[in-house]
């Protein structure tokens, strides 16, 4: 690795790759991932903006598509993962994120979204359900708080109860799981630390203890895993790194080796980034690879906000304060 010349970030190829995603309608994969179509737009658009190419997807089409995923049904007015799919908190967050990037929140009825998100809080525990059926997960706590914060409507839910639930999911190692008693997991840690940052509660995080655990995720090849003795994966360049960044401890990991690892996972022919070198690329890992590189200060990329997973200039435009670095 050290003797080989490192491939740089292949910006043009990645832009082309993301643009091509909606033209693969003959692939089975396209059909099997229908429920993730809206998420794909968020991942792709955010990556494009960080690559200084937000216009590579036509704003009009993007906004029109997002609106077509919204339900208009009283308190169930959330967004589905695709046209005709059920409303769900996660797709509602992705929609709001997309609309914020496109500066088009006025195209939707914000009050209805707020009402939908607020209806998902469980009053007894403070936790959030993913949809009307009641699945509970700290991912949804993040989804709700991030969404409402972007809409400047955190007043619509019981924030202190929400914090109480998140803190119940903290483990002996300082990490967080999906529910009380669930194993610490870097993805859930991003959600919990991010959510606490949004509501100014970072003082509740055991920053040194958790930071140590997060650093232990870095492996010999420079990549990061999400739990002990799991394989390294490019997406943890985001989940682990964003949490460290929010806690102001990014310098605790070896940046050079991680950059090398992410760049090696690029597809040098078709563009896009895979979970690890040699695997098939997808838009999910493409975003988290690029966002990770942005946190690592890779040249030529726009800065990313570690709390909202949005380009920093977008978060600044809507006037939200930087809520990290304790």
């Amino acid at each position: 690795m050290t003797t080989e010349k490192q491939t740089p970030l292949l910006v043009d190829l990645h832009v082309k790759y993301i643009q091509s995603l909606d033209t693969k309608k003959d692939d089975l994969e396209y059909w099997l991932t229908e429920h993730l179509r809206l998420s794909g737009v968020y991942w792709g658009l955010t990556a494009l903006d960080l690559l200084n190419n937000v216009d590579a997807l036509k704003k009009e089409d993007v906004v029109k598509y997002v609106i077509s995923c919204q339900h208009d049904n009283g308190s169930l007015s959330g967004f589905g993962g695709h046209v005709g799919h059920d409303p769900h908190l996660l797709y509602t967050l992705y929609s709001v994120q997309i609309l914020v990037i496109e500066d088009s929140l006025d195209a939707v009825n914000v009050d209805k979204i707020v009402e939908y998100v607020a209806s998902l809080q469980d009053h007894a525990t403070g936790a959030f359900r993913g949809d009307e059926w009641g699945e509970i997960d700290t991912r949804f706590s993040y989804g709700a708080l991030s969404c409402l914060s972007l809409l400047k409507r955190l007043d619509a839910v019981n924030v202190s109860k929400a914090v109480e639930f998140i803190m119940l999911c903290k483990n002996f190692d300082g990490g967080f799981g999906s529910s009380p008693g669930a194993e610490s997991h870097a993805g859930q840690i991003f959600c919990c630390v991010g959510a606490l940052a949004i509501v100014n509660s970072l003082h509740l995080v055991d920053a040194d203890l958790l930071g140590w655990w997060l650093c232990e995720r870095q492996l010999k090849n420079g990549g990061l895993n999400g739990r002990p003795e799991k394989l390294e994966d490019v997406c943890y360049s985001w989940w682990v790194l964003s949490a460290l960044s929010i806690l102001g401890r990014l310098h605790w990991i070896n940046k050079e080796k991680l950059i090398e690892f992410v760049l090696a996972a690029q597809d040098p022919e078709g563009g896009g980034i895979a979970d690890r070198p040699g695997d098939m690329v997808d838009v999910f890992h493409t975003l988290f690879g690029i966002a990770g590189l942005s946190l690592l200060g890779y040249p030529g990329l726009k800065l990313v906000d570690p709390v909202y997973c949005l380009p920093k200039h977008v978060v600044q435009r809507i006037g939200l304060a930087e809520r990290y670095h304790v």
């Binding site: 903290k170 483990n171 300082g174 009380p180």
Partner: peptide, 10 residues
């Protein structure tokens, strides 16, 4: 106690 929400620091 089922130790939910309790870390080494706590």
């Amino acid at each position: 106690n089922d130790l939910d929400g309790i870390s080494r620091k706590d």
